[in-house]
Design a binder for these strands. Sequence first.
DNA 1: GTAGGGTTAG
Length: 611
Amino acid sequence: MVSLISSAHDINNSRQFFLHHRLESSNSVGELKQIHAFIIKKGSPQFQIRLLHDKIKSLVESSSCNENLTYACSLTKHLQNTHLFNSIIQCLSASNSKTNSREAISLYREMLIQGLLPNTYTLPYVLKACAKSRSLTVGQQIHAHSLKTALLSNVYVFNTLMRLYAVCGTIEAVHKLFHFQPGSRRDLVSWTTLIQAYVKIGYPKVAILSFFDMCQASLRPDGMTLVIVLSACSKLADLNLAIKIHRYILDNNLNTDVFVDNALVGMYLKCGRTHFACKVFDEMPIKNVVSWNSMITGLVRQGKFKEALDKFRRMQAIGLKPDDVTFVGVLNSCANLGLLELGKWVHAYMDKNDIRADGFIGNALVDMYAKCGSIDQAFRVFQGMKCRDVYSYTAMIVGLAIHGEAQKALEVFSEMSRVGIEPSEVTFVGVLSACSHAGLVEEGCKHFDDMSKVYNLKPQTAHYSCMVDLFGRAGLISEAVELVKYMPLVPDAFAWGALLGACKIHGKVELAEIAVKKLVKIEPEREGAYILMSNVYSSAYRWKEAMKLRKIMKERKLKKTPGCSSVEVDGEVHEFRKGDKSHPKSIEIYKLLEEITNHSKNIFTSAPFEG
DNA sequence: GTAGGGTTAG
């Protein structure tokens, strides 16, 4: 067949154009085969490959149809050409399917079996497939081929091999490979891959040091490098470093990329500098959905939920379509502000736009309904989820525990174990607080023990506090005291608060006095401990001490957390604090409030059965 | 014909 092809004359230009057009519009493999047969008769192998490349690409992309893929692969048997193998391996490794990546690796094997040698294009393609399918062992074999064939001296081969080791988490291999390669053979991509490997593995400091080394080696970073460097700064949350890198970017005119600006916004928010982030954000010449998401999620992380929702509203006002990341931020804000209506609106939007309540967004929806008091709706969403992970189960368990539905929370926990999802530390906070509220001492103790024995999780202060609460509520005061005394971590305000709460229920005045002293030491500014203690005195009819404590509170001018309420009108949140007159309609609001008060007074002071 | 990029949870 090869001799037949090589002896044929090439097709003229107009015919080439015609064939190209026919190939593009052909939808069936049958038709493709006919056209291909014609090309085999009339064209050179190079022409066939060039012409077939795009078609192969679309065949691979629609490889849900096996016939297409089989046909594309069968071409390699007839043509036995490195370029064609490269084309198909490239197409297969470009797709996100693991099956296609594995198919790419098999084709590489087939190529070697046919006696063809890989070139500088083959190895980057097949290494990309190895990285996508996390095929480290095959990658190591290809590493050996690259040494044997001297292809490792090619910078593309070298970089993709480094990337393979990086995504497989073998940082030592990345480090070794990079430092054994002569400096002249390393380019910006090599450095970027190295820096990214350090960030991914959790060494942001080493990543930054490598970036400085790169600058020392007189390489100028581009947008891609900077995005990774900025993400390392974010992880370190080091403001001084952040400012230094930002200045470097400005001085060198490197912020010409929306990706870099987004990373800057995210970095400043991670460092807790909202106004810096806003400044970068406001001055961005181009903003995309990720820019808005960075802003929204950054504000949510800082607990600035109202501001996050303001940003969401502005994003809507300019007509930018939100995506699932946006909604996770919005749902999170709703959960923390108790905005059920807005949360419901997001859910309706999701239904309307075929966004499935799964993954991140499904979990955020469960959490929102649970925190906004709609525990039944949270449960319905949870049950409707196709795949539930540790986050879904935890959100559900914690939600049920908050609502006092201990039994149901424990049932969900058993289901979680049954389906083989490993719980996390947070799951146990939910489980233990459920036990505590339901007075299930034995069960609580068992779960607490299981944490370390079965699940290899180290109990944290929050778990000890739950146990103190569990013992305290059940009246097992000495067990609660023992735990506070001998716990391996320093008891926090929750632990002492739980003990104080138990003292109030069970009238333990002396012990309460010890607990309150500790509590005041930890939180001297807050009035909660004093109020609780004064209640302990009152419950024991020790009025004098109770009065004395209230006097001390007055003298120390303790900060009272102002009562705060919020209402949601047409999706906008209005917050009110005691004595707060910052609302734009404050005058009208207070006027109406006075009218309502007077009206109520009139009702209550007027004689019964009158009007 | 080739390699490296950002935002998401309990």
